[in-house]
Design a protein around this nucleic acid. Structure first.
Lengths: 196, 196
DNA sequence: TTATTTTTTAAACTTCAAGTCAATTTTTTC
DNA sequence: GAAAAAATTGACTTGAAGTTTAAAAAATAA
């Protein structure tokens, strides 16, 4: 119990650091964001970051896993729903968009893992991404099988959908004319047109 | 005349350097690609790069402009064609995809200019990007005006199309089952479904 | 060939950030 | 409240990469 409390405290601190890292890394390039900057954001010194993380790359890697694991959890839940394939796909898209906007910084640093992560970490990140992408393929395939969607190239369609969804947090601004829900609704509807 | 010959020689050398830079920068992150690496690729020493370019950021910036200016030229030509809006849009999409694949490295480093370029350069790059994007908006708007496309949110549609097109060079592999033309054809057809 | 200009080089210079660590402070435990 | 464990500090080391520069080499011109 007590141990669990401490563990939760550490987990919280780790998450704080990850968010600080993500915030700064999403603004500037990797090497322009120093460990000192990341620490300063939290009124710490960089020394203590090394108490929680092995090194800078580990920090980046854990930003990836944090988002990826949550994303997988969310889409897993959707897949267990008993809606139509189109319903599931739509829900997956709108949730993705809203999550991406909500976690803008973290999503932002996830573009181009190839460039920023070395082989060891990259492998794992790619695996998790593939795991997430598979759900989209699954929903699309289901729709084709059931006749809800016409026969089409599942991967190609998914490779249109996902970059489009991820693109959102590159241009979204909270001061734009559309809010999260409107964007999610509009974009997912347009994307569904490809399939019906 | 003689001057022009020399100028062309310099221009060629500059392009060689830009391509070397792009090649390495597209593989690794900015700071992991050193000026020495870029020079070594061309059997030069890093000192001589500074004979042609002001600094590393200038190198990056000119990679952007090289591609952007060519892209704008290409789409400008398409816009002067007298095909239907759908024809022009389709041509713009297929050309974009094929150009992106052809110039994979250069396109690759163009994701996230915000992170790698400082304000001064960034402004110019953004202007050029906007210039390019405007053509897509134009084709879509034309189609709506002529009744070829239904009424829809031009910007939103463009913000689906372009990220999808740019996504291609993240996953394209020359050893994949589809070649450039097939990908361009298939993807542009799917994207057009949103509009018709 | 000689003189002049252009280009390349190699080394030096500078700057700066990642990572380490022993000492200190804070928190927890009993 | 004292002892033990956990967390934080900040100075230090290290290495690396961008940039500068003076001199050498190569190309061009006369």
């Amino acid at each position: 119990m007590r141990l669990s409390l401490r563990e939760r405290k550490i987990a919280k601190k780790k998450e704080d650091i990850l968010r600080s890292a993500a915030k700064l890394l999403s603004e500037k390039d990797d090497h322009k964001t120093t460990m000192e900057d990341i620490a300063a954001e939290l009124l710490m010194t960089k020394g203590s970051i090394y108490y929680y993380f092995k090194n800078k790359e580990d920090l980046l890697y854990q930003c990836h896993t944090m988002i990826l694991e949550q994303s997988i959890e969310r889409i897993e839940k959707i897949s267990l729903t008993d809606g139509s394939p189109a319903d599931k796909l739509k829900k997956a898209m709108t949730e993705h968009i809203q999550f991406a906007i909500q976690e803008k910084s973290l999503f932002n640093i996830m573009v181009n893992p190839e460039q920023s992560l070395s082989a060891h970490y990259l492998e794992d990140v790619k695996k998790k991404r593939a795991q997430y992408e598979k759900y989209f393929d699954q929903f699309i395939a289901e729709g084709i099988a059931s006749g809800d969607f016409p026969s089409l190239d599942t991967k190609m369609v998914r490779m249109i959908i996902l970059p489009a969804l991820n693109g959102v947090n590159q241009w979204y601004s909270p001061r734009g004319e559309k809010d999260e829900r409107e964007i999610a609704e509009l974009m997912s509807n347009y994307l569904l047109r490809i399939l019906v």
